[in-house]
Amino acid sequence: MTARVITITSGKGGVGKTTTTANVGVALALLGKRVVCLDGDIGLRNLDVVLGLENRIVYDLVDVIEGRCKLRQAMIKDKRLSELYLLPASQKRDKSAVRPDDLKKLCEDLRPDHDYILIDSAAGIEEGFRTAIAPADEVVIVTNPEVSAVRDADRVVGLVEAAEKGPARLIVNRLKPGLVQRGDMLDTSDVLDILAIDLIGIVPEDETVLISTNRGNPAAFDEKSRAGLAFRNIARRITGEDVPFQTFREETGLFGRFSRLLRRDGRTA
């Protein structure tokens, strides 16, 4: 069994690539998969803090590529999940320190001992993006339901196809169901109409993501988090399981709160 390499990218910055990589990585490891989360954002390292592993970094990706350490020495083993590893980016270097062939070689070395390698891509469509998709078996595009993020995602869909890494699959992140209902936010169906690619997840806006990131303890660990559930569902879909998509509705008023309370145990969605 050899690992599947999945690159998470977006075009636009700030849509939640790193959060998605960390949470899907955790969720896959919770399913018993052997996972490496690889930070492809050289010079702007962040996957370490989102995963809560920032204090244990000695070596990084660039040290491995330039031969200052062995691959195993740079891999940080998660303290909560025995089969989750982080391969951190270098904070002092820039994108030119890692070429596409370097990352391909690194992934080839990782493949035999793991099930999934998740690469957190740099934003943009330049060198960092191109390097991050080079080793990918599959590309996942994260977007937000807003015009600039969707426009950039569309550009990336085209570039991924041109690089023969397509078709990419889509995660709609930070959806606000109340705004959609009010007619003030693009719904997932609108985004899918426009981008015409397959959906792999819808993640609702959820303050537990911010709070869990503050603590370095991804929301995917949190049984009660709505976003955490969405990330766990994405992980199950990645493993090939057919998981129905949740429909989100903003429930206000007494009846809404009550019915939400009743459904709290139901984890079918």
């Binding site: 807003e146 969707v150 426009r151 959609v180 007619g183 936010m185 693009l186 609108d190 426009i194």
Partner: peptide, 13 residues
């Protein structure tokens, strides 16, 4: 709605 406007503008651009 702003949702419809956003979709139409995106499709055009």
């Amino acid at each position: 709605s702003s949702r419809e406007t956003a979709k139409r503008r995106l499709q055009l651009v």
